[in-house]
Simulated assay, not measured.
Amino acid sequence: MEHHEPVIIKRAGRRHHEEGHGGAWKVAFADFMIAMMALFLVLWILQVSNQEEREAIVSYLNSSSIFDQGSSGNPFDSSPGLSPIDLGGDASDLSSHDAAQTITSFFDGNGDGKESDALIPGQFETQEQLSVLAKVVEEMAKQVSAQGNVMVDVTPQGLRIILQDDYKQNMFSRGGDDLTPFFEDLLLAIAPVFERISNQLIISGHTDSTQFKSRFSNTSNWELSTSRANVARQTLIAGGMPEQRVLQVAGMSDRALLNTDAPRASENRRIELFVLTTPAAQVLDALFGGERNNELDKAQQQAKFNQPVLRRDQASAAGTDS
């Protein structure tokens, strides 16, 4: 019987010239296309926007996040407004937004001395007491990284606290009263100060000289500044300030510009909180028909008593008695 060896046939697979490349080039090409689209989008925005709109875009990007609830994280969500690009945002719902920072150092008394690092409840009247209060406000602004947006000034009538815009941050949406998250956190942070002190407070809103324009309403800068001041009041109350602390809410429009050389400058758009001393609060209360000052009443009665009595007045009085 013959021995047959098995026949082994080797077949080589066909080689394709595409096998050496793989799919990595597709990922790189996709990244390149995304970068080009972003570049073209930036160039388009620079072409169609003016300087004020560019500043508004920068301010929105610095003060908003895609993780914010609602439509504030999406600048292209046109549902709340008529513009295809909404630069404002919806941060007015205080129930769904908490302050980013918690200020405790000035209320716990955890420093070296109680006079300098703890805010003692009560009425602040003297210049020294107001200076301590000013340092508290400045330190709180520092803790929320708002040093450039807060100005504090001690005056004979009280403490003046200015919360203003800058080239990075806008307090409100352009032409609206929607408070941005950055300044909402700032107001919520300083609200406990007005819970501790018993001084009366004036809240005033200010705009720049740019006239308010709306196709569907007759609203002017007067209504806009008043509405913004009231939103600041509501935010402070939500942060813990008693409602009775506020003596007056006023809208000043553009009648009190900080930068008169540049009427449209960002620092002119601001909210002012004026902490009144007791004499200043009494003068304001008497000016608007509140309880009259006792000394003023006494002086008025004394002046009336010292007036000369005319004979005809006596005769008319006698005729009335008869």
Results as ranks from 00 to 15, higher is better:
L130H: 11
S131P: 04
S131W: 04
S131N: 15
L133K: 07
A134D: 06
A134H: 07
K135V: 07
V136E: 04
V137P: 05
E138A: 14
E138K: 15
M140S: 08
A141T: 04
K142R: 15
K142Q: 14
Q143W: 04
S145D: 15
S145I: 09
S145G: 07
Q147I: 15
G148Q: 13
M151T: 15
V154T: 12
T155W: 00
T155A: 10
P156T: 08
P156F: 00
Q157R: 14
Q157K: 15
Q157N: 11
G158T: 05
I162P: 02
L163P: 06
D165A: 13
D165V: 05
Q169V: 11
S173Y: 06
S173L: 07
G175Y: 01
G175L: 04
G175C: 03
G176A: 12
D177Q: 11
D178K: 14
L179Q: 03
T180S: 13
P181S: 05
D185C: 11
D185T: 15
D185L: 03
L186R: 03
L186G: 07
L187T: 08
L188A: 05
A189N: 14
I190D: 02
A191C: 07
A191L: 04
V193G: 07
V193Q: 06
V193C: 08
F194N: 04
E195W: 06
R196G: 01
S198G: 09
S198E: 15
Q200N: 13
Q200I: 00
T207E: 12
T207C: 12
D208H: 02
S209G: 01
Q211G: 02
F212T: 09
S214A: 10
S214E: 05
R215Y: 06
S217I: 00
S220A: 02
N221Y: 00
W222R: 06
S225N: 04
R228E: 01
V231G: 00
V231S: 02
Q234I: 01
T235S: 10
L236H: 03
I237E: 10
I237Q: 06
G239P: 08
L247N: 09
L247F: 08
Q248K: 13
A250S: 14
S253Y: 03
R255Q: 11
R255F: 10
L257I: 03
L258P: 01
